[in-house]
Amino acid sequence: MSSAETNAAARIRVRGLAKRYGAFEVFRDVAFDVGQREVVTIVGASGCGKTTLLRCLDGLLPADGGEIWIDAQRLAAPIAGVAMVFQHFGLFPWKTVYDNVAYGLRMAGASREEIGRRVPHFIALVGLAGFEQAYPYQMSGGMQQRCGLARALAIDPAVLLMDEPFAAVDAQTREILQFELLRIWEGKPTSMIFVTHSIEEAVLMGDRVFVLKGRPSRVAETIAIDLPRPRTRATLRLPRFAELRERVWSTLMSEARQAEFQLSGG
């Protein structure tokens, strides 16, 4: 699939987006499109506003300027068809895996019959079959995020927003979950915006990597990731993967180094 085809019909269109907290401008003039089956990963230094941007895209935070369009709908509040996977998992500790996965469907007004059909399917898809009646506190971080993923997938979202979803799990689990997510996405490709700290993860997941930079930040650089899909563990060994990782790294670090050696109050 060429990138022209991917973007032929953009699912997400962002124009001139701005956000500030009081006098502090988080980002300004953020503009991009995301195709219907495109994965965009967003990297940037800590505090550059990656997560704030994602929360604006979910309608959780009002923007202070600009527009967000999801298909033909202008975003003002959370809308149907957009689902978020949270860094902190966001599971309800008093609900079982089954009830957590059913939550989004119930809020969307799904029928009892539909819930009974879809929930077991998505629990199995993320590899949690047999844990339907477990509570979050009984599970490892990796299992909890599988549950968070199933909850998001269950509402059949046209847009998946991933807020550093694997940042709170250990390194091995993180790698397992990355390939699980790739497998699931290949099975049903959707628009996905994936915020991460990890350059490797950004290159592995994305069709394009956006680098957020500056104060206020903006999309300073867009790096097309022309690695073949489906992506697997073999992708990590491609020379092209190393090249792209280096490119994202140097783009990010040019600023990070400046920031690190800047005298405070200067």
Partner: peptide, 21 residues
């Protein structure tokens, strides 16, 4: 606040917010 944010993200109404969260 994260719990309330999850509820908002999944478009919970006020009554469902009380009942479920």
């Amino acid at each position: 606040p994260e719990m309330l944010e999850v509820a908002r993200s999944f478009r919970s109404g006020e009554r469902a917010l009380w009942r479920d969260v």
